[in-house]
């Protein structure tokens, strides 16, 4: 049986990988991927807790399902935005996307 701290620890490591990606990448697509990693680590936490704290009524798994749903929606919209930007300026460096700034 896998001890709960192992699951949580794995999730924490995955989360910080994602966090590092979100903080340092300039390519919007890659930032999107890093966000997906973070969401996955959150799901891992939810599933892990669900397994250990309420095995007969896995509410945590349901939350994970909703996270997935929202993630899918998010990726669809975010990619659409990125594509529009890429078509207009051939560049998805988020430091340079500042049309709405100021």
């Amino acid at each position: 049986m896998v001890p709960l701290p192992y699951v949580l620890g794995l999730a924490a490591l995955l989360f910080s990988l994602g966090l590092y990606g979100v903080l340092t990448q300039r390519n919007a697509v890659r930032i999107l991927m890093a966000i997906e990693l973070m969401l996955n680590s959150v799901n891992l936490n939810l599933v892990g807790f669900a397994r250990y704290l309420e095995p007969d009524r896995p509410g945590g798994q349901l939350f994970a399902i909703f996270v997935m749903t929202v993630a899918a929606a998010e990726v669809a919209v975010a990619l659409a935005i990125i594509l529009v930007i890429a078509h207009r300026r051939d560049d998805v460096d988020i430091d340079k996307i500042n049309l709405l700034k100021w």
Partner: peptide, 12 residues
């Protein structure tokens, strides 16, 4: 600054 990453970094 409008740089979202700075904001996130501050949060982190």
């Amino acid at each position: 600054s409008g740089l979202v990453q700075s904001y996130i970094l501050a949060m982190a």
